[in-house]
Amino acid sequence: MTPFLEVERRGRIAILRMDRPDALNAIGTIEDCDNIVDTLFELGNDRSVHAAILTGKGRAFCSGGNIKGIKERRGIGPLDQPDSTRANYRRGVQRTTRAFLDSEIPIIAAINGHAIGLGLDLACLCDIRIASETAKMAASFIKVGIVPGDGGAWTLSKIVGYSKAAELFLTGDTFDAAYARQIGLVGEVTPADGLLDAALAMAERIAANPVRALRLTKRLLRESQHSRADDVLELSAAYQALVHETKDHVEAVTAILEKRAPTYTGD
């Protein structure tokens, strides 16, 4: 079987396409989760990657988990006993969640179609979200009688606030891209045929900056979501001490003083 993620490189940008279009890019197996984890790890070790875009092939972004697999107790959901199911979630979708949270690469979700359940939570694990005007979204775990087992209760509430996240999870209602922008879930809505171009334009603006500072800035943003101000200040000082010693910092300052465009090397 082909890997769940197809990876395309465009210079400093990696485009990650979920490649199960016949299944609306549902995540069905532990191997799918492993592929996501391994891909993020490999890209994280490549300093030439300044930014990434996550999107789906076909007409869906990601329709969530595989419902047939859930019914048949195989794949990423329930197994034969509760303790096995708990281990399966930790080994599969939760390991995927941790990989996104640990990644220091700026990631843009280009939501090209349905983002449902786990699919919506994958988008929420990205740093920036852009949606096609035809996209449909739902935090719809409740509609199949389960809870968000992938950590989405934490992630979505960080983006839209507790009350709105509660509304989305407890109703399971489907909503469109315009509503997603209204509640701050996505930052931009584009025509379907302009989505990838918009995501690439955003990624290029990000990728134009020094890669070490980019990654440490993202880590600061992540840590700031659950840390005290004093802890963030200490971490900021430590990270600042690191980037002050990079060649790209020296180049940035020199370019400003010389009134020219900087040339960054990643050093």
Rank of each mutant, 00 (worst) to 15 (best):
T2W: 01
F4Y: 15
L5A: 11
E6P: 01
E6W: 08
R9Y: 03
A14T: 09
L16H: 01
R17A: 09
M18N: 03
R20H: 15
R20Q: 14
D22T: 07
A23G: 05
N25M: 09
N25L: 12
A26H: 03
I27S: 04
I30W: 09
I36H: 08
D38F: 14
T39N: 13
N45W: 00
N45I: 06
S48R: 13
V49Y: 02
V49H: 03
A52F: 02
L54K: 07
G56Q: 11
G56W: 07
G58F: 09
R59S: 14
C62F: 03
G64E: 07
K68P: 02
G69N: 15
K71Q: 13
R74I: 10
I76L: 11
G77S: 15
G77E: 11
G77A: 15
Q81S: 13
D83L: 11
A87Y: 10
N88H: 04
R90L: 15
T96H: 06
A99I: 07
D102H: 08
D102N: 14
I108E: 07
A110D: 11
G117Q: 08
G119K: 05
G119T: 07
D121A: 01
L122T: 06
A123V: 03
C124H: 07
C124M: 05
C126E: 04
I128H: 12
I128M: 11
R129P: 00
I130F: 08
M137V: 02
A139P: 02
A139V: 01
S140K: 04
S140H: 02
S140R: 01
K143T: 15
V144H: 06
P148R: 02
D150W: 02
A153T: 11
T155G: 00
K158P: 03
G161T: 04
Y162T: 02
Y162P: 05
A166P: 00
L168Y: 03
T171N: 02
D173N: 12
T174E: 14
F175N: 08
F175P: 03
D176F: 04
A177E: 06
A178M: 05
R181S: 06
Q182V: 01
V186G: 04
V186A: 04
P191S: 13
G194W: 06
A198V: 05
A199G: 12
L200W: 08
A201N: 15
A201L: 11
A201F: 11
M202H: 13
E204Y: 07
E204W: 10
A207R: 04
N209F: 12
N209I: 10
N209H: 14
R212K: 15
R212N: 10
L214W: 06
L216Q: 10
T217Q: 06
R222F: 06
Q225V: 04
R228H: 12
R228S: 15
A229G: 06
A229R: 14
V232G: 06
L233G: 00
L233V: 07
S236V: 00
Y239L: 03
Q240C: 12
A241T: 12
L242R: 09
H244F: 12
E245Y: 00
T246E: 06
T246F: 08
H249F: 14
A252V: 13
A252C: 07
V253A: 14
V253N: 04
I256S: 03
E258S: 12
K259V: 05
D267P: 02
